[in-house]
Simulated scan of single mutants.
Amino acid sequence: MTRVRDVARIQLVHWPALLAYPLGFVAAMPLLGLAIDVSNGETAGGPHEIYLLPALWGMAAAGHLQSMTQVFPFALGLGVTRRTFAAATALVVTAQALFLGLVLVAFGAVERATGGWGREARLFGLGVVRQDGPVTQWLAYTGPIVAVSAICVLAGVVFQRWRQTGMYLAVLGSAAVLAGFGALAKAQRWWPSIGAFLGAQPSLTLFAAGPLAIAVALGGLAWLVLRRATV
């Protein structure tokens, strides 16, 4: 475990990408929300939601792509095993997501205390999340960050294994699968049933258990590729 923590500290060499930039974005979200409201003429338009959290997920996860493409070759040069690096990556991803989730809970509390930043805007306590308490909120904020981070880790591993060709094929293949499923769902009229099913799920399932399952699956796939990745 000590070795894993040491390798995790190596990954934190680019801490601005992992923590500083996401925290800066969170702090700027109320101002960004105000700018969006002003542009839409909604500064006094009653309760409304502004969806900026997906941008935060991508920003928080991007640092892990950098870990796989830059820190991984360096760590192997120091004699770090692939298994240790993978464990350290999982530790960093989890710790970052939990920390940012806690920050989002705090900003959500400020949002409620200020009446939606003084204009009934909701950037953190989104109705779609249906958070019922601080712990549920924390897990609901954490889950998507972990899942998107797993996507970036897998992308970085694919790049290390197959370079640009692998990335192009992965993107095109993923787009083809998603487009094919979308077309099939439309042809079979599955979307109403899918929407009803998702809408009936509790927050912990949609935003914690579901993303965690996705992260575990993608993490397992990343490990299978990482075992043969070269530098």
Score class of each variant (00 low, 15 high):
residue 40 N to F: 15
residue 200 A to I: 10
residue 145 I to A: 01
residue 165 T to D: 11
residue 74 F to M: 06
residue 183 A to W: 14
residue 36 I to A: 15
residue 119 R to G: 09
residue 176 A to L: 15
residue 96 Q to K: 03
residue 35 A to G: 14
residue 97 A to C: 02
residue 189 R to G: 09
residue 126 L to S: 08
residue 49 E to W: 05
residue 179 A to D: 00
residue 220 G to L: 08
residue 165 T to I: 09
residue 61 A to F: 02
residue 146 V to T: 01
residue 131 Q to D: 00
residue 60 A to W: 00
residue 58 G to W: 14
residue 17 A to R: 08
residue 223 W to Q: 03
residue 79 G to C: 01
residue 100 L to E: 00
residue 24 G to K: 10
residue 97 A to R: 02
residue 52 L to W: 13
residue 81 T to V: 03
residue 185 A to K: 05
residue 90 A to P: 06
residue 138 W to L: 12
residue 112 R to A: 13
residue 138 W to H: 07
residue 4 V to M: 03
residue 126 L to I: 05
residue 57 W to R: 04
residue 11 Q to K: 12
residue 223 W to K: 00
residue 3 R to F: 11
residue 59 M to R: 02
residue 46 G to D: 02
residue 53 L to E: 08
residue 204 L to Y: 07
residue 117 W to C: 11
residue 230 T to A: 13
residue 205 T to N: 07
residue 227 R to H: 01
residue 217 A to I: 07
residue 63 G to P: 04
residue 217 A to E: 05
residue 56 L to V: 14
residue 20 A to C: 11
residue 23 L to F: 02
residue 164 Q to C: 07
residue 166 G to V: 04
residue 136 T to C: 10
residue 114 T to W: 14
residue 7 V to C: 08
residue 172 L to C: 09
residue 149 S to Y: 11
residue 93 V to K: 01
residue 88 A to E: 06
residue 79 G to H: 00
residue 189 R to F: 11
residue 110 V to S: 13
residue 177 V to W: 07
residue 72 F to Y: 08
residue 193 S to K: 09
residue 88 A to Q: 02
residue 137 Q to Y: 05
residue 148 V to H: 05
